[in-house]
């Protein structure tokens, strides 16, 4: 047998094995455990794009205390985070940086659009320096309207996002 055919043979088998492993992990109790761990380790990136950050701070404060859901107030680096909360207006200058931040995050990553500005441009929809369609930069999982949304509204969005994660496939 030549080396090429051996490699092909090995490649096919590795592919088959990894498929098998994926189906095992993606089904039943293991899927439940994986999703459960993802649900309880939503670490937000700290990039504030505009004034909604005041209510983000209030959500991180003592009254609601999202550490009950395993969210850490200020996680270390981007590489450990899996939740990007777009806190308000995305200007054209910020959009570039936001995209870079999103691309640096490891998968699976989730995005919450917080505030009217992130949903549709909000109060500044007719301004010359605003990106109105944040959903075209990257896919958004949950939209929270409000200007700014109450901290409870943001937390309800996180509860909704957790519901989505609970039902999702492991290898999406």
């Amino acid at each position: 047998m030549s080396q090429d055919t051996l490699q092909d043979f090995a490649g096919v088998w590795i592919g088959k094995m990894s498929e098998l492993v994926q189906t095992i992990i993606g089904s039943g109790p293991i899927k439940y455990i994986v999703n459960w761990s993802r649900m309880y380790a939503l670490w937000p990136v700290h990039i504030t794009t505009a004034c909604c950050s005041a209510e983000f701070g209030a959500m991180m404060g003592p009254r609601l205390d999202p550490e009950r859901f395993g969210m850490q107030a200020v996680a270390g680096g981007l590489r450990q985070c899996d939740l990007l909360i777009v806190e308000g207006t995305v200007t054209k200058k910020m959009a570039k940086r936001l995209k870079i931040v999103y691309e640096q995050m490891p998968k699976p990553r989730y995005v919450i659009a917080m505030g009217d500005c992130a949903c549709s441009g909000g109060l500044f929809h007719d301004s010359y320096s605003i990106v109105n369609d944040v959903h075209k930069l990257f896919p958004i999982d949950v939209y929270v309207p409000g200007c700014p949304p109450r901290p409870e509204a943001l937390l309800s969005a996180i509860v909704k996002l957790r519901e989505k994660i609970r039902r999702q496939e492991v290898f999406a």
């Binding site: 794009t49 004034c51 207006t89 007719d126 301004s127 320096s129 605003i130």
Partner: peptide, 14 residues
């Protein structure tokens, strides 16, 4: 600066 320049003063005119 200028990451959050939203042009408030211009919007106010219309």
């Amino acid at each position: 600066i200028g990451y959050v320049h939203r042009g408030c003063e211009k919007i106010a005119e219309y």
